[in-house]
């Protein structure tokens, strides 16, 4: 009897996370099943068991499973990064791109396209994106050493994002031919098509590391509800916290952009959508945002495959289309609640 009451209280405490996690297996099965070649649930189970139609096994093993893993990983990183960023900056409009990380990573990738490195070696593109994210962090670190507060961090981040955006536009402007410009544009819209296990491997390290670092910020983010002074008086080292968040952001978002391009809105809308289902504590939003992000990206990826368009839509476009209406509704409700504070 005690076991069941403990189980019930555990469920009550983590209701949101458990419910979202329960949605993951059906969503994953749907993602594996849908595509230009439909694989029925029976064939899917057979293929996972290592028997059945060899073509279906090949499609799953080489295409859909890595694509699903990349989608889940990227979504989880972006969702959690958004929740941490909003909690730390105490700004519901914050998302991972606010500190310029996404744009800086995108600039790195664009440079790889522009100078033709991406064609020479398959890992050049993600590597350049990753280096871009880290390079974007350096001026930000210099900036916040002089101005130690979240507002300065946002201003510095906006400057880096704007500079990276301008450099990307310059690259498009000076692009040697329209095909190269098209290639860059397509990549910038974000996608997880044709991703291999190498991409999964490449994402796995930033995924584990960033989620681990983000998780360590949970209690400090709760303390920041009352402002910097109270958080410091409760024993939290705010300088260490800032370093932790910036490192986790550049590793996580850099890794995500490296394998999938810029998938916007996930980090902004997922915490927004989920916040009303929590006690409004930033710490309670971290893991649900990770799972919610994974679900949103996977759902958008399924949607991309279902739409009868001539060219497959880019993932970033679809996440925005799905997320914005929900975001709009939740944001209005959220703003009402925040106004009275």
């Amino acid at each position: 009897m005690r076991f069941f009451s403990d189980l019930l209280s555990f469920y009550r405490r983590h209701r949101l996370l458990i419910n979202l996690s329960l949605c993951l297996p059906p969503m994953a099965l749907l993602s594996l099943s849908i595509g230009s070649t439909h694989i029925g649930i029976h064939a899917l189970i057979q293929s996972i068991a290592g028997v059945g139609d060899p073509t279906a096994r090949m499609i799953l093993g080489l295409l859909r499973l890595p694509r699903l893993c990349v989608g889940l990983g990227v979504g989880a990183i972006l969702g959690m990064a958004g929740a941490v960023n909003q909690g730390y900056l105490r700004n519901p409009l914050a998302d991972p791109s606010l500190l310029g990380t996404s744009n800086a990573a995108a600039l790195g990738a664009v440079l790889a396209f522009y100078f033709g490195f991406s064609a020479r070696f398959v890992f050049c593109l993600p590597l350049f994106a990753f280096i871009g994210a880290l390079a974007g962090l350096l001026p930000l670190l210099w900036f916040v050493r002089r101005h130690n507060d979240p507002q300065s961090l946002i201003l510095g981040g906006v400057a880096i994002a704007a500079f990276s955006g301008a450099c990307i536009s310059l690259a498009l402007n000076l692009s040697p031919n329209p095909f190269a410009a098209m290639e860059i544009m397509t990549w910038l819209m974000g996608a997880i098509t044709d991703r291999s296990w190498n991409h999964v491997l490449l994402l796995s390290v930033p995924f584990c590391l960033s989620l681990f670092l983000f998780r360590k910020t949970a209690s400090a983010l709760d303390a920041l509800i009352l402002g910097d002074d109270v958080a410091a008086s409760l024993g939290f080292d705010l300088v260490r916290l800032r370093w932790l968040i910036m490192a986790a952001l550049s590793i996580g978002v850099g890794g995500a952009v490296a394998v999938s391009g810029s998938i916007g809105f996930v980090g902004l809308i997922v915490p927004h959508i989920l916040r009303p289902f929590t006690r409004q504590l930033p710490s309670e939003l971290l893991w649900p945002s990770a799972v919610g992000g994974a679900l949103l990206v996977t759902f958008a990826d399924i949607f991309v495959r279902l739409l009868p368009t001539e060219n497959e839509l880019q993932l970033g476009v679809v996440t925005a289309f799905i997320g914005v209406p929900i975001f709009f509704r939740q944001a209005i409700k959220g703003v009402e609640a925040m106004k009275s504070l």
Partner: peptide, 8 residues
Amino acid sequence: NRRIQWPV
């Protein structure tokens, strides 16, 4: 300062 960021 009595400002609170989220409506907890």
